[in-house]
């Protein structure tokens, strides 16, 4: 039992070390080589644009369910569904927007990144890149990392917007809260710091998703089964790390008054 715990810890440390080394290589190649614009734009479309629909839908319904729960709960306590706009927007921009968008992007685009790079690793395409004078970090990893870091915050902005719209629809049409009241609740009580709190988190989430998914892909061994394991491992790891990171980022940002 001690042996298996030890092996597990060693394996985790090995992966953390490998990911850190990959990040170091990213920084090295980012400044020393021509930037892969075409690859980066392609990956931004794959990761960002193609995730827009699913993140928008998720946020719309999250906003709707938040409004419904908040309206019914507050209504049963105070008689009227007050501050629904505040509650929905506050929850979305600080927590649910960044976290849910990151989870959805990790499941959709992160898995695809690991599977693609993993398949390239097991079919020797990564080795072929080396032999053709191309560092895979420069050609494969950096464009994907940049794509994650550039698109996830933008997706989160839209997610927040769709969530607020979802909350608005439920408030106005199901809870009979006047639209102006819903919007005034938002503008009066939610300020720029709340928005920044969530927005800053997305950059860290994006960097983490990019690092884990690319590293899992590059370190894939063992054919089709290995690709499957890496992909599952990448999604599980990123989802867990999003939640863990969220707690620590919340604590740090709050300590800085954001």
């Amino acid at each position: 039992m001690f042996a298996s715990v030890g092996r597990y810890v060693l394996n985790v440390l090995n992966e953390v070390g490998g990911s850190a080394d990959m990040l170091r290589s990213c920084v090295f190649w980012l400044w020393r080589s021509k930037f892969e614009w075409r690859q980066t734009v392609e990956q931004s479309v794959n990761i960002g644009v193609n995730s827009f629909g699913v993140t928008a839908l998720t946020s719309l319904f999250t906003g709707m369910v938040l409004a419904l729960q908040a309206g019914n709960t507050i209504g049963s306590i105070f008689g009227d569904p007050i501050f629904v706009g505040t509650l929905v927007t506050f929850s979305l921009v600080r927590e649910l927007g960044p976290v849910l968008t990151s989870v959805v992007v990790s499941g959709r685009a992160g898995a695809a990144v690991t599977a693609q790079i993993g398949t390239m690793a097991v079919t020797e395409q990564i080795d072929a890149l080396y032999t053709l004078g191309t560092n895979p970090i420069r050609y494969l990893v950096i464009p994907r990392m940049v794509a994650f870091v550039c698109t996830l915050p933008v997706l989160t902005l839209f997610s927040n917007l769709f969530g607020v719209i979802g909350g608005y629809l439920v408030s106005v049409y199901a809870l009979n809260v006047p639209g102006e009241v819903y919007l005034t609740d938002i503008t009066s009580f939610v300020d720029i710091e709340d928005f920044m709190h969530g927005f800053i988190k997305t950059f860290f989430f994006a960097l983490m998703i990019g690092t884990v998914c690319c590293y899992k892909g590059i370190s894939t061994r063992g054919g089709a089964e290995g690709v499957g394991k890496s992909t599952t491992g990448a999604v599980v790891t990123t989802i867990v790390l999003i939640l863990v990171l969220d707690y620590f980022l919340t604590a740090i940002l709050t300590a800085f008054g954001i």
């Binding site: 020393r32 020797e124 395409q125 080795d127 032999t131």
Partner: peptide, 23 residues
Amino acid sequence: EVKLAALRRRFGYLFQEGALFDS
């Protein structure tokens, strides 16, 4: 890594399964 890339310029490698980029 830069010098290693320069060395690889002199070598070509034909992989067993071809290792063509499928994208």
